[in-house]
Design a protein around this nucleic acid. Structure first.
Lengths: 201, 201
DNA sequence: CCATCCATATTGACACTGTCAAGATCAAGG
DNA sequence: CCTTGATCTTGACAGTGTCAATATGGATGG
């Protein structure tokens, strides 16, 4: 298998740059992110990325788009193993959300952080982000009794659940919940789960 | 009143730099933040900030510290006008939280965003952030029946409420809830309030 | 009053960054 | 074979953070 095509028009620079960018972002943090460092890591000239992504924002937009796709996949995967009960499925999505945040914090920061506002984003990014949102809405509408609830409450439900999981993910990422509080007798995973559970009440 | 002391050892450079930094952050966004631009705005040399803050991280740490103090003040103010009912007081704090987020989004991003991890932060920052957290815990423990709840549930309550409000604030800041969803018949403020209310259930 | 000292601010330099224009290199098709 | 267009490199430019060396001026002590 030709793992690395030395065609010297590299062959797959775009994806290589995306992968390298994610590594750099995860290792050095968003503050120290450098386009030239990404190019260096791939072994290509400092200005090669421009041809594929235009500028820094272009690269990060593309990376965020890929992030949203994997994000959705993570939620769907956890939902799938959760079985048939709509409540358990919603909780599964929530745990997928949180687990994604822990496995790729820099990526999620990029996706939801400042810059990259939902409007004024590329169509692909909007589409990928919209699909994630639709996933949440579907999971909420599948709950028993959702049909009979007034529209205003239903939307408040959606955003309250999103807020809770999103906020928890952010607190975890920013290191504000490195361990379950003393006195709970729980490990971190169980404590997190006991919080996420509340979106299904 | 000597609004501007032209003492030419400027007199109050530290605070002037903090104020300018906040403006730059709010106007140009965190990505484009530049230490030299801050110095320029105050009208001092590019390297003057170093003497007061060491480096960029030092300035931002100091700004985040000030942010946490104002953040706590905002919550306390809203709590004060909420009256005596512990539930209403908790909701007031929550609304103070999101209002602060809307009035100074860049600042809150700075306070909770990546970089500036709670450990490895300056003692003053830790103290200011800790005071905000204590405020939340107090508001939760003041709720009726809190005493009799098991410790694990009480902590889960605390973090679930924090998560919800924190997540909602972040969604608002990142432009993901610019207006109440259609069909709710609510304006944005009322919709936000209907979500924040849920922390007192 | 004057000299000294030290926090405060400036200047200049260095390596690094993002972006742009111009050139080189390669793959494929007429 | 040779032209064409996409891909990548080279070189330049302005701007950045940080450091060392220098200037400045307000306070303190004689």
């Amino acid at each position: 298998m030709p793992t690395k095509k030395e065609t010297y028009h590299h062959g797959d620079l775009r994806n290589a740059l995306l992968a390298a960018a994610e590594s750099v972002l995860a290792e050095t943090g968003p503050e120290a992110f450098s386009l030239r460092a990404v190019a260096r890591r791939v072994g290509v000239s400092h200005s090669a990325p421009a041809h594929h992504f235009g500028d820094t924002a272009g690269l990060l937009d593309a990376l965020a788009t890929e992030g949203f796709r994997r994000f959705l996949a993570a939620m769907e995967a956890e939902q799938a193993v959760a079985g048939d009960d709509p409540k358990e499925r919603l909780i599964g999505s929530g745990m997928g959300y949180v687990r994604f945040a822990e496995s790729a914090p820099a990526l999620l920061q990029l996706m939801f952080g400042p810059g990259r506002k939902p409007d004024e984003a590329s169509p692909e990014l909007q589409q990928a982000a919209g699909a994630s949102f639709a996933h949440l809405v579907d999971a909420c509408r599948a709950l028993p009794g959702a049909e009979s609830r007034p529209e205003a409450e239903l939307w408040a439900d959606v955003y309250a659940r999103w807020s809770l999981v999103h906020g928890l993910a952010n607190l975890l990422m920013s290191g504000r919940l490195k361990t379950a509080p003393e006195g709970t007798g729980l490990d971190r995973e169980a404590f997190v789960h006991s919080i996420v559970r509340r979106i299904a009440t």
